[in-house]
Design a protein around this nucleic acid. Structure first.
Lengths: 206, 206, 206, 206
DNA sequence: GATGAATGAGGCTTCATTCAT
DNA sequence: AATGAATGAAGCCTCATTCAT
């Protein structure tokens, strides 16, 4: 009964709203973005917007989910078939090409905001923890696998290393969010961090 | 008649407000703290509060300033007389005793919030950058001094190392703010990071 | 092609919606029921619902009409053939068996709401008055007839007694709507009121 | 410290708002009155209004409380000293002069609305029940006292009679709210009801 | 006839800040 | 200096109703 066209259309509309919202969140940050901003950017009415997302939090979580899905995808490769766990790790941290560069998720600052301002909210906090656990386990699995095949040294606990990676990435994202582009020296720091990881994992310089 | 009494009194009152505000900011975070919360905690009237601080931002910056002064104090020791630059560095990062532990500035989450939500505000951003530069220069000076005396290896650029320290500290503060105490493994990560610094600075294990 | 089928179908559909709406109005009351509630309960689309009823008021009035038709039916018996006007009166007030009991129209609270919240709306008010007049005339006719046949005393004006019956019934419905079941003592009050009516109408205890 | 003037002033302001609100509630009813209506009628700003009352419900309950205090006052006369319990009862039902008349609390319709539309709200319902119990106990006490002194017959349970009085008063208020002035025949019905009470209490016509 | 996406008016509430006393 | 009442901008959310498909 329900026209297929409509279903397609809604999907598209939803995607459009999410894109518009992304632009706005990047521009204003999470806290300072209002539903009105999003409405206007997306060219939709108040009520229309609320038909797709029941509030700002809900909408933002959809964006978070989307981002996570992409990341998880990258790691989705069956670990057993992997030639180089090191390569996989680099790809996960720095994206496709696996080289430290200046690209950074432009929504990252808002994501940090979302979790930081919501740290006293039960729901948000546990949501953040779940996300953290997920990402943690992805890194951890890779490192563990690498240690098992002997590619990595097992001098350090794999989980601890995984946490350190997250700490570094978060710290970098934070400073990048707060400081102007040039001040952070994103790339240099990344290279240095890779050295750090090489040391910790006992990987010889490639 | 005697203005000095009044002057004293005002100083005290101001300090009281700042203490109260600190408690409140720790409890609710920057964004979710309202002037009313502070008023009530400080036992002062609305108008009274505004007599001391012209707005929330102003008040929070006073707290920031205070924190920075303390930090700078630690480093204020004339560098030339320092026996061990490594020790000084550790003290700066981990506080008085210089050992990685679980103590962390309880106001740190609010500070992150303050800068992250205000990253699009010209004034706030440049204020944040100035702070960053200041802290950066403190670390940088120490490392540079250590490298000059030969205590540290000069394999890495001192400024870059200084930045990395900040990145790590910020990342840790961020994760600590967002996740429950146990999840971050603050101490373990700190120990690992110290190992790394030793490597980068060519310091032999103490 | 055969329009009658369609006609039948629409009738049924309309009746289904009314039933569903009744359930919802009973549950949430008039004001707090939304068209969405009704849609969902009736398993019909927004647009579909509006095809049958042009708005919430219209729909509710259909339910009112239905209720009135039933009541009028009870009294519809040709008055002349009636053996006992007292019996008829009791049936009208208390339903089929004519005995004071705890049954009460579950939609009554919503009906009161409808008229009370709408008392400043010209249209709704006059609609309410028409209904009142209708019910009034029904009671009045019976009492008048009873008085003419000598079954009832004519000590009191029949119309005034009719009004009093309505007042009592409305008062009972109101209290029943507002208070929990047990608090009203519906049945006891009814018995007392019947005693009173017997006195006023000069009916000996049955 | 806080200026006495101010305290006085606030009391007055609060009273003014309540008066304005009363006018508005009488005019529009509870549901259809908005905080904006009240603001405008009271000549106060949005924020100002919320300083005195935290929402519409809170404000309305203040009006209810006020009304109840007045009623309770009437009954406050020590029951023992009362010459005629009948007289007291009449005063309670019909006001000071104790004679059935056409005066009726103009806020009554809104009060009914308040409790009827809120009947599914836990808080409101129990508030309504408490009120009912209070009024009930006032009537009950008087009737019981009258029965004990022999002024009233004890043929009927005093509590039941008290409930019936409330039912009647509520029914009358309801019909008065819904119908135009003339249709209810308030006074005639009241006289009739008094006859009813006389019968039930065994009071000879005065 | 039916569908349900879209509209937008309308209400509620919070809070930083001002200002008369 | 201190007080706290008052202001009003700004956000959030709901819901009856319309209309293109």
């Amino acid at each position: 009964m329900s026209p297929r066209v409509s279903r397609e259309h809604m999907k598209q509309r939803r995607a459009d709203i999410m894109e518009a919202a992304t632009r706005i969140f990047i521009k204003h940050g999470y806290e300072h973005t209002t539903m009105k901003h999003i409405m206007e950017e997306a060219g939709i009415s108040r009520g229309g917007l609320y038909q797709y997302f029941s509030n700002k939090e809900d909408l933002f979580e959809a964006l978070l989910e989307e981002g996570l899905t992409e990341e998880a995808g990258t790691a989705g490769v069956s670990l057993e078939k992997v030639e180089s766990h090191w390569m996989l790790l680099m790809q996960l941290i720095f994206g496709e090409d696996g080289h430290p560069d200046t690209r950074m998720d432009p929504l990252a600052p808002s994501k940090l905001e979302f979790f930081i301002t919501g740290r006293n909210d039960e729901r948000r906090r546990s949501y953040g923890e779940k996300r953290y656990e997920l990402v943690l386990s992805i890194y951890n699995e890779i490192i563990k696998a690498g240690q098992e095949t002997g590619e990595f040294s097992d001098r350090y606990d794999s989980e601890l290393l995984a946490r350190s990676i997250i700490t570094f990435v978060d710290g970098l994202a934070l400073d990048h969010a707060i400081l102007s582009e040039k001040k952070v020296r994103l790339e240099d720091q990344s290279v240095l961090f890779v050295d750090y990881l090489k040391m910790a994992l006992g990987v010889s310089s490639s």
